[in-house]
């Protein structure tokens, strides 16, 4: 793809706004459409676009696969951990009311935290799947060391 100047320039211009939009969808999910799942997928699509134009190796350098594996587990742990935390604070599993003195504040913060967990897991899994699919091209055996 090195010769496609238009694609490269447009991608350079577009990737950062997509990432920002993903963060907006993530952290504004209580007020506007969207939430962790949508944000994670949008975030992943920015990285996928980057990988398509500049090569999977470049994308791997930006976000290494190890980080994705950690991220996939971390998001789920954040979600489940919030549930355990509410139990330790005396509520039911995932009863966010008890997180803060005011129940509705607790709900708000609990939702932000679990949506963050959802977003991290979804983005990590999507990017990881893209890496393994795109990394198994014609030269499967030669270009493995990365």
């Amino acid at each position: 793809m090195r010769e496609h100047t238009v694609l490269r320039i447009v991608t350079q211009l577009v990737v950062a706004p997509i990432l920002i939009f993903a963060l907006y969808v993530q952290f504004h999910g209580e007020y506007s459409p969207g939430g962790g799942f949508q944000a994670g997928v949008i975030f992943a699509s920015a990285i996928v676009l980057y990988g398509l134009i500049f090569g999977v190796e470049a994308a791997r350098r930006a976000i290494p696969p190890t980080a994705l594996r950690i991220g996939a587990a971390l998001g789920l742990l954040v979600f489940g951990g919030t549930g355990v935390a509410t139990m330790l604070l005396g509520g039911n599993f995932l009863e966010y009311d008890v997180l803060l003195p005011k129940p509705e504040k607790g709900q708000h913060y609990g939702l932000i935290i679990i949506e963050l967990g959802v977003g991290i897991t979804v983005a990590s899994v999507m990017i990881a799947i893209f890496y393994v699919f795109a990394g198994r091209g014609r030269h499967r055996d030669e270009d493995e060391p990365a």
Binding site: Y31, S32, G35, F37, F79, G80, Q107, G110, I114, V125
Partner: peptide
């Protein structure tokens, strides 16, 4: 009144049906 969040979809997914969403995240994982 209970959750104080304008987007009902997020309230339902995250709070009322938090178990389901946790299960979905586990499925994705």
């Amino acid at each position: 009144d209970e959750i104080h969040i304008p987007n009902t979809v997020t309230a339902v997914l995250g709070s009322y049906r938090g178990y389901d969403t946790l299960g979905e995240v586990a499925v994705v994982f």
